[in-house]
């Protein structure tokens, strides 16, 4: 039986993790390689690097970081942010990503999902959707890091992404992002029930119970967690203990000596 995944997201700018990450005792607190491997040791099932680079130079640096990370990380690595074309996807995969997520670029030109899936397989193409509840209650798709509204309705857009080749949906609630009041369960369920690929719930994790709810009530296959881990409020192992106690199948922490 497939276990429910806990995915840790790191915001990376150039060679550094940005946003405060408060691990104690780690020599280089902002080093993506060190943090990714540390989360693997804690039991993370996947790592996502969200590239928030502002320049081509920083973007090139991130690919080098991905390369160094892939050499030390033995769980899947997803790279997202600023990926526009199938060639960008190719570069990220070659650098060491196992999956690549596309967001704004897919809205601008949905064909890119098909182009990437045809070349590399649906299993490495993640459609990242930022959704926000609009007037009348429907969820709208927002792009450009949540700054620009589109006419797209989130559930229908998720279905189109899958039809065009996405093998997974990373669904972020803009309303809940950073609020730590729990994932948007209605949004998550609406999308998860409408598509036949895994859906990753994102935005709003404040405590372990929220992860359980995202799976049981939101029907998510996986949950994305960032702030509460980086701030040292909890650990992946502690989150998974609660999920396991709630009866969810989760991967046990492996012994570390390889």
């Amino acid at each position: 039986m497939l276990t429910r995944r806990v995915i840790v997201c790191l915001d990376v700018k150039g060679a550094r993790v940005v946003k405060g990450v408060q691990f104690v005792g780690l020599r280089d607190v902002g080093d993506p390689v060190a943090l990714a491997t540390r989360y693997e040791a804690e039991g993370a099932d996947e790592i996502t690097f969200l590239d928030i680079s502002a320049s081509a130079e920083e973007r090139a640096t991130l690919l080098d970081v991905a390369r160094r990370t892939a050499e030390q990380l033995f769980i899947p690595l997803t790279i997202g942010g600023g990926v526009r074309t199938a060639d960008d996807v190719a570069r990220a995969l070659r650098a060491g990503a196992d999956k690549v997520s596309l967001n704004s670029a897919a809205v601008t030109r949905p064909e890119v999902l098909t182009e990437a899936a045809d070349r590399f397989g649906a299993q490495c193409v993640v459609a990242s959707i930022d959704a926000k509840r609009g007037e009348g209650g429907a969820w709208k798709v927002w792009v450009k890091g949540g700054r620009e509204e589109t006419p797209l309705e989130a559930v229908a857009w998720a279905q189109e992404c899958v039809a065009r080749g996405a093998g997974e949906i990373l669904l972020t609630s803009i309303d809940r992002d950073g609020a730590r009041t729990g994932y948007d369960l209605d949004l998550t369920r609406a999308v998860a029930d409408a598509v036949n690929v895994p859906v990753i719930a994102s935005g709003g994790a404040g405590e372990a119970r929220h992860l359980v709810d995202a799976v049981t009530e939101g029907h998510a296959d996986a949950v994305l967690v960032a702030g509460i881990l980086h701030d040292g409020l909890t650990t992946v192992a502690a989150l998974k203990d609660v999920m396991r106690a709630a009866g969810l199948p989760v991967r046990a922490l492996p012994e570390l000596v390889a």
């Binding site: 039986m1 497939l2 276990t3 995944r5 099932d45 397989g121 649906a122 093998g167 690929v197 296959d221």
Partner: peptide, 29 residues
């Protein structure tokens, strides 16, 4: 749900293959 993406459990057949014995592998990506 296809593709299958994520960690799933192994159901080894008997006799257990030495590679599975030595690795202790039970949940795989």
């Amino acid at each position: 749900r296809v593709p299958q993406i994520g960690w799933n459990t192994l159901e080894p057949t008997a006799p257990l293959d030495p590679l599975l014995v030595q690795s202790g592998l039970d949940t795989v990506y």
